[in-house]
Design a protein around this nucleic acid. Structure first.
Lengths: 231, 231
DNA sequence: AGATTTTGAATGAATGTTCAACCAGCACTG
DNA sequence: CAGTGCTGGTTGAACATTCATTCAAAATCT
């Protein structure tokens, strides 16, 4: 019954019913898993929930993925790859100027595609289990080793350009931690913080670290456009 | 672990714990719960684990706490109260100077009593479930409403004193998010970040935000010993 | 003794996994 | 083209396990 199920419908190759390709089924199940993680939490996520969410039958997960564990690992893997691809694309699209590239990374982190309640909640669910599961720990890996390298490289370039004091690695660590902390706050939803406010907060850190490159919103400082919002 | 914990060996006549008062038993069970959360994670924490960890029998938790849920709530409550009491005490002990008080808050956050793998892991376990449990969400509450108010007040004082640009509330949000993000990183243990390094990173943010009040560490420093440091 | 705490086995519900039957597509044959 | 058999995705019920909870009996304290 209820095969159509609809749901998030990843678009593209429409093949709905019985014949959906293996990969489509898998991503359909992964999406349903993210849904369940976001609404019920890790400890309450059951295969029955996932199957119901996808509009399929009970035993389906054990056919496409070998076990519940494997499904969860695949889900985390999917999110990690999506995240990495997203910031890499943002970096490619940005120009050669280090300041622009750094801003692009921050913006990418707060993009709705990545930074929404559903995905944030799923990330946090995995974080909560990461310490006791080496596999999760490696995949969360405080985001991505490469991401931190990219941050550090850009910070280094700005420090060299602007003659700022401080260490590039430390600045990158602080920035990365700040971004993660803001994600956490956004997920919690408490203290009524919003996505734009969080992004503004991150930009404020950049302004404090690299004042010549990231002018404060109020001061009529030296950089180019003020396409940012005001406050 | 936790308290003396008493070996699980039921052999000897050992009349050690039987007499322990209700409150002692409860905190003993709470400590065992934190242990289990830290080592096995939220989803794998069972009452049997907790009871074994405390060296007591299976049904004990349902006697002192009504249910597993109540035990977990009590555990989170305990940690929240301990955290709040800790930073409040640090604030009381600090002098009247806003810069000193802010530094005291940061130091308190990285105190071993609060900031160790065990407690961090337990916090993170609760964070992971917070979105789907209003009770947890309220207790995590992105730490503490009052904590953020204290941060904002101090930031405001420094901004007024030093004539810095920027908003106190934004600075406090950034600082709080950074501290939480660093906690998360410390818990993950990845990228080999250490507690002193994390604290240094937080201090770097303060130096960037309030350069007159928090001189950079590279110059001949101002405080006393440099017993920290590492990397 | 009476009250309180602790124990450990029994209970029942929830859930991951297995599996035999079912069915949609597809290639091949007559 | 119709029929036929094959491959493999899909189903749902059966199974086994794990675990929170209950409770009567035992142990300990006052």
């Amino acid at each position: 019954m209820g095969l159509d199920a609809g749901a998030p419908s990843p678009a593209g190759g429409e093949r709905k019913g019985r014949k959906a390709s293996k990969e489509m089924r898998q991503s359909q199940l992964i999406e349903a898993t993210i849904d369940s993680l976001a609404t019920r939490g890790y400890s309450e996520t059951t295969l029955a929930d996932v199957a119901d969410g996808a509009g399929l039958s009970r035993g389906i997960v054990n056919f496409h993925f070998e076990s519940k564990d494997k499904l969860l690992v695949a889900t985390l893997q999917f999110m990690a790859e999506e995240y990495a691809a997203h910031w890499r694309a943002a970096l490619d699209k940005a120009g050669p100027d280090p300041a622009d590239r750094l801003k692009a990374l921050v913006d990418a982190d707060f993009d709705r595609k990545i930074c929404n309640k559903r995905k944030l909640a799923a990330w946090c669910a995995f974080w909560g289990e990461a310490k006791s599961r080496p596999t999760y720990q490696a995949l969360c890996g405080s985001r991505d080793e490469a991401y931190q390298d990219a941050l550090a490289e850009l910070c280094g370039a700005l420090i060299a350009e602007g003659g700022y004091a401080g260490d590039a690695r430390d600045a990158a660590t602080a920035l990365d931690a700040l971004l993660e902390g803001l994600w956490l706050r956004l997920m919690m939803g408490a203290s009524g913080i919003t996505r734009p406010a969080a992004r503004r907060s991150a930009m404020a850190l950049l302004a404090a670290l690299f004042p010549q490159h990231f002018p404060r919103p109020d001061g009529p400082t030296q950089k180019k456009t003020s396409m940012e919002e005001k406050r």
